[in-house]
């Protein structure tokens, strides 16, 4: 579904992603882990069209999508739940969800609001409230629910557990699992490597802008290097 080749992304002169390759197959759950500043967010920003790669190629469903802007990529089925949630603070929850459905003109949208509210009853209670007044966990729920409103085929998640209490992290991961069970393909960036590797079937490990390890999630969980660097053992 997604094939990335020799991707390079930079900020001005600084190269943050230095020629990485990765693939995500249809229906797969893949994680990208790595330390702070490794280039994970930069990678997802490039894949979702927020940043233009300076070199390399991105193919999505056998189409070259390198350098396409975000508003076109979302139409082809790629959605990003950005780092730090990025909810529209001065829009209501309902309006945030409506923004998620911005590209859609089909009559099923109404049903999808209900699906979002069933998935996150907490959002349903607060639908007329400004998103800026939500707690961090609720904002994360909203960010995920909003991304789903576009009916993505490939969902990119950037550290959905960041800054959340353990119980909330668990809840978010259960939701992600439920979303994946519906057939949405996932590329998950996480600091919480253990949770991510347990959820996903394959993983990539990123260090200073390069991919240093790629393997099945189980093997990575058993890999002494990974255990030492990312699982705190």
């Amino acid at each position: 579904m997604l094939e990335v080749e020799a991707l390079e992304v930079g900020y001005g002169g600084i190269r943050a992603v230095k020629g990485i390759g990765l693939t995500v197959r249809d229906g797969e759950l893949v994680t990208l882990i790595g330390a702070n500043g490794a280039g994970k967010t930069t990678t997802l920003k490039a894949l979702s069209g927020l940043l233009r790669p300076s070199a390399g190629r991105v193919r999505y469903n056998d189409r070259d999508i390198t350098g396409l802007p975000a508003h076109e990529l979302v139409k082809s089925g790629i959605a990003l739940v950005p780092e730090g949630r990025g909810v529209f603070a001065r829009l209501t929850i309902e309006e945030n969800l409506a923004m998620g459905a911005y590209i859609r003109r089909d009559p099923d949208v109404a049903a999808d609001y209900n699906r979002a509210y069933t998935l996150f009853p907490r959002l349903a209670e607060r639908r007329k409230q400004l998103a800026g007044t939500l707690s961090g966990g609720e904002q994360q729920m909203l960010a995920i629910a909003r991304a789903l409103m576009s009916r993505p085929k490939l969902l990119l998640l950037d550290e959905p557990s960041m800054g959340l209490a353990p119980l909330m992290v668990q809840k978010i991961f259960e939701t992600i699992k439920a979303v994946a069970a519906e057939g949405v393909t996932l590329l998950l960036v996480e600091q919480n490597a253990k949770l991510a590797l347990e959820l996903c079937s394959r993983g990539y490990v990123m260090e200073s802008g390069m991919i240093v390890l790629a393997d099945d999630a189980d093997s990575l969980l058993r890999n002494p290097q990974v255990r030492h660097a990312y699982l705190g053992e």
Binding site: G49, A70, P82
Partner: peptide, 15 residues
């Protein structure tokens, strides 16, 4: 309004 608040995120929504 969304673009005013965060143009990048609005772009992610397809705007």
């Amino acid at each position: 309004r969304a673009t005013e608040q965060n143009p990048d995120i609005a772009g992610l929504m397809g705007v």
